[in-house]
Design a binder for these strands. Structure first.
Lengths: 188, 188
DNA sequence: GGCTAAGATGAGCAACGACTCAGGTTCACC
DNA sequence: GGTGAACCTGAGTCGTTGCTCATCTTAGCC
């Protein structure tokens, strides 16, 4: 099975598609998913019709962006896991994600999509499996308490990201808040 | 200065105002603040014009509800503080708030209003002061680490509530997630 | 009971946003 | 260069929502 979907796009179509996705990521990151499709079109330098040709529905656009973002997150987890001790990797991933969330609303929209109507095709599932691997490794290494489950960890991840983005936490508050969470995850 | 605002309402007006607020609390709790004013009017059994006579703006309605809810939250904190040891009281308040959030979106809308455009007249400020009192007492009693600040505690409160409401955590996940947070707040 | 100002009503207005489509433009292949 | 299909354009449709206002109703007071 091919990695990408069916038909090859014409050169101009491919260019526009890329522009639209870039613009959409920007716009939705700044204004949240309620931002208008027209603003995306403007920022991309195309007509609204073009946006709807590539993404028949606003939800499709959102989904596409989130799928993209998800792929990056999963690869982040994998990189961290290769590069450092599992406990550190888990905490580093947490920290990075929160820092990103504070600037990019898209991150939390993705995470919130876990149980929402806009179902990114098992997007969060993949991320969850990835984080789960990290968690188990960290527990085996003794850096994280053995009696916490993946569900709580994901829940805390979502929660802290959401808090950070909604309230716009400054960097030092992010750090101090995460310190409490990490203390809660560490073995006594 | 009078506790309530200026003029006494006519009997029917007072009745309608109460109905509208009750309906609004229900509707916004279920559907979030994006729910339409018309649905509030329907549920209250009045015409839309009546809603706008009492609350000139949708934002005014939201504000009124949140002010109300805030008063209840603050009195909850005070009750708990009187009834139990400060550390337990703080944890109990956390737990209650999260449980409420899971059902009532209004709670997190209020908390999120901390730095938002819809400024509930220093609403969150009052709550923050109240929780701050609890926190200091708990720290003096040795139930909570002395090196955590009010800002982090409020941040965690917001975050966990937000997570709970957005993702609709079941009761046991709420419990397990809060357990991690409480472990993080406890002295080592 | 009669009066009047406060209040209620709901059709309607204006703004906005998702989405469409008839017509013009451009790529890609020969 | 010619041709046709893919693609782009943007004015327009349709549904929704916050809010208004002319008209009718009613509480409260004598």
């Amino acid at each position: 099975m091919p990695i990408d979907d069916a038909k090859p796009l014409r050169a101009d179509a491919a260019r526009n598609r890329a522009r639209i996705m870039a613009a959409a990521e920007q716009v939705f990151s700044e204004r949240g998913p309620a931002a208008s499709t027209e603003e995306v079109a403007n920022r991309a330098g195309v007509a609204i019709g073009t946006v709807f040709r590539h993404f028949p529905t606003k939800a499709d656009l959102l989904r596409a962006i989130m799928k993209d973002l998800l792929a990056r997150l999963v690869s982040d987890v994998d990189d961290l896991r290769r590069g450092s001790e599992p406990g550190d990797a888990l905490f580093a991933f947490f920290t990075n994600l929160v820092a990103h969330s504070a600037r990019q609303k898209t991150v939390i929209d993705l995470l919130a999509a876990a149980g929402s109507e806009l179902n990114v095709p098992d997007a969060v599932g993949t991320l969850e499996r990835s984080v789960g691997g990290l968690l188990r490794a960290a527990q085996q290494a003794g850096t994280v308490r053995r009696d916490v489950g993946l569900a709580e960890v994901m829940a805390l991840l979502v929660a802290v990201c959401q808090g950070a983005v909604q309230a716009g936490w400054p960097a030092d508050l992010q750090t101090r808040t995460l310190a409490v969470v990490f203390a809660g995850l560490a073995p006594r």
